[in-house]
Design a protein around this nucleic acid. Structure first.
Lengths: 191, 191
DNA sequence: GAGCGTACTGCACGATCGGTCAGTCCGGTT
DNA sequence: AACCGGACTGACCGATCGTGCAGTACGCTC
């Protein structure tokens, strides 16, 4: 009898190693050899499980894109309460897919043309568009952009610039609160 | 007699080509060959003007780091007016060094150990630290992080996600205003 | 035990990588 | 005319890149 497979040998740990490498070094900077070494396999094995380096990227990012699409599909953004709930789930998404978000946010512009990346970009545009009320000003739009980009980036670069590292479970509600503060039109502003 | 040199032949356009390549493809993704082609020179010429690829990166990022250090050195952050003035100049800095900021923000984590990058990171930490008032809460700190990262990223990824592109000169004051709104403790917030 | 599919590997390939080096061209001095 | 130094180049190097391919070890079913 076999319990939970102790080492999820094979493709799944290749995906994890690839994700780490892509996030740390970018797609071109990461080599199949180093990914294979990190996963404890040979370079040939990588290309046995995945047709190409691009296919490996696709496999690594796909779950995050699926999750984001689901999140957007079930979102209710008609009232402030729904929007706030969505933002909390969005922050959860960011936490759940840190590495994927890092790849998309930092190295996405070099990956235009990769289907996964293009899909992810389209979803981000949709998030921004649906969050924006009909009567939003340009300034509101800029604030939304800063909020979304900032939230993603605080998470992605947390280990890089954070002087005093907040533990994830303290940062999560704070990030959700700040996001809500910036996105909800509640915040009164002069003129 | 010679007016302003029409094509600033040589090293300076190599630096520009390199900056564009690094910003678009990352340090490892950019090759000396492609940089040379973009500058209309041979690969050998790149290594004639710069000792190594790393030296080229240094030359490309150095002016931005110098400007940021100057900006920080002359900053007066003791009162809200001084802080607001600093933020406007910070936004100007982001606009003036878009490509350098893109390299540092997107690919900086892969460039740890490069002296220019480490210096830039240290300056960013100093900006965040000096902006933060003594009585700032964790939530304030998160909002500052979102604001700074978001501002940088809105500029860096503007061409990627912006649905309706704002011209620079409209975006600039909006970004400064939003930054001030987020950083200055002026914004009233419930509990 | 023959046969088969899955997981995995070593080896070799052409291309490209960053970098070295000897040499060419050319305007300015002497 | 001889010389010099800066700008620039082509040929070449060893290493590494992504990828193709033949082969091996193992567990399963007839």
């Amino acid at each position: 009898m076999q319990y939970a497979r102790p080492v999820p040998s094979g493709a799944s740990q290749l995906v994890q190693a690839a994700l780490r490498s892509f996030a740390a070094s970018g797609f071109e900077g990461a080599s199949l050899q180093r990914i294979a070494d990190a996963a404890g396999l040979s370079k040939s094995s990588v290309l046995y499980h995945f047709d190409s380096k691009e296919a490996l990227l696709d496999a690594a990012l796909r779950p995050a894109v699926v999750d984001l699409r689901d999140l957007l599909g079930t979102a209710d953004l008609d009232d402030p309460a729904g929007t706030q709930a969505f933002l909390a789930r969005f922050v959860d998404f960011l936490f759940a897919h840190r590495l994927e978000v890092a790849v998309l946010v930092n190295h996405g512009s070099a990956l235009r043309g990769q289907p996964v990346v293009d899909e992810a970009d389209a979803l981000v545009v949709e998030v921004a568009h649906r969050l924006r009320p009909a009567d939003a000003s340009d300034r509101d739009a800029v604030r939304f952009g800063v909020a979304l980009a900032g939230a993603a980036f605080v998470l992605v670069g947390a280990d890089r610039w954070a002087t005093e590292q907040l533990p994830d479970e303290e940062l999560r509600p704070l990030l959700a609160a700040v996001l809500a503060e910036l996105v909800l039109p509640a915040a009164p502003q002069p003129a």
